[in-house]
């Protein structure tokens, strides 16, 4: 009989785990849970030069259990913005209120791309996210609006269309493209290479310690058809080119015939997982990161080879200096 009791005791204790306790949904608990989650899982603390316990202490002083939910949301959002990461977000129970860091702060981004229409003339739209045009001097122009997985297959048709029009140069315009599926960026590089090419590396958070990562894990693009030959490819970006747009800019650094023109990208060089807080809010925290082939982070933005920016006056006048630079770029000069 004593063995039965012994077995019972073992069973009672083996499944103990502090993480499986139920935290309260009081404001201090919500704040602490969110801060702990950030400290343990955020993958680019060192890059951002953050000492998280100090940040925690600074904002924790503003929270007590009498604080309203609105004020708590504001304090938690401000703490989140210390990461300066456009992938990290906080949302309330209904998803009606969201807080996301504005990574375009300090940069001028044109409200829309209408000035570009003055240059591209008649264009062809491929469902919702791809616009193409054949410009003078056999320049192929592709405006990619978002990295949408369901429409990724159209890239092959678009590039066949370009090949059939015998273009001598291609402009891929991802300005104000907020990103989406990063696989598309990896695949897209495949149309401009003739052999498998390393386009970057990934690191994934593997445990709670600040140096606990798995990596480097090599990302390789494989050649895809149609191959358009060794023609110049110009990638056009602005500060609102985020996430997968930055991945594309970072990956294309590995391709010798690609030139990057425009404004620094918005960064967003990681992926994230959402996490439920005790009061029903959800916080998303970046838990991995990407490095280009030179070992550079893309999180803070990918700097173009040729820096060109539009001004508010340009926008008023319908002028697009970035696109002008891309059109006039001559690879032989």
């Amino acid at each position: 009989m004593k063995y039965i009791y012994l077995l019972g005791c073992v069973l009672l204790f083996v499944s103990c785990n502090d993480e499986l306790m139920q935290p309260s949904n009081k404001p201090t608990s919500v704040f602490d849970q969110m801060s702990k989650r950030i400290e343990e899982t955020y993958s680019m603390m060192e890059l951002k030069n953050l000492d998280w316990p100090t940040v925690h202490k600074q904002y924790r002083a503003l929270v007590d259990d009498g604080i309203s939910q609105d004020s708590l949301f504001t304090v938690c959002s401000l703490m989140l913005f210390e990461l300066k990461d456009g992938h990290c977000f906080l949302t309330d129970n209904n998803g009606e209120k969201s807080a996301v860091y504005d990574f375009t702060q300090g940069y001028y981004v044109t409200p829309d791309l209408t000035p570009a229409l003055n240059y591209i003339g008649e264009y062809k739209q491929w469902r919702n996210f791809l616009i193409t045009s054949i410009l003078e001097n056999d320049i192929g122009y592709i405006n990619y609006i978002a990295f949408n997985k369901s429409e990724a297959g159209y890239w092959q048709q678009v590039l066949e269309y370009m090949k059939n029009n015998d273009v001598k140069k291609i402009i891929i315009d991802v300005r104000s493209n907020p990103g989406g599926e990063p696989l598309i960026a990896q695949n897209l590089c495949g149309y401009f290479i003739t052999k498998p090419t390393k386009v970057g590396t990934m690191f994934h958070k593997s445990n709670k310690g600040k140096n606990d990562f798995i990596g480097p894990l090599t990302l390789t693009s494989t050649p895809k058809q149609p191959y358009l030959g060794d023609i110049p490819v110009i990638l056009l970006t602005n500060r609102a080119s985020f996430s997968s747009s930055s991945y594309l800019a970072g990956m294309m650094e590995a391709l010798p015939n690609v030139i990057h023109i425009g404004q620094i990208t918005g960064g967003g060089g990681g992926g994230f997982l959402p996490y439920e807080l005790p009061n029903g809010w959800v916080v998303g925290i970046t838990n991995n990161y990407f490095l280009d082939v030179k070992g550079k982070h893309i999180e803070l933005g990918v700097t173009p080879d040729i820096l060109v920016e539009n001004t508010p006056e340009d926008f008023e006048e319908g002028r697009d200096r970035m696109l002008e630079a891309a059109i006039s770029y001559n690879a032989n000069n």
Partner: peptide
């Protein structure tokens, strides 16, 4: 820890979206 990719998928030193 914070990924949904299978452990072996991340351990092989390669990665693909």
């Amino acid at each position: 820890y914070v990924e949904n990719y299978p452990t072996a998928f991340l351990r092989d030193g390669r990665f693909s979206f």
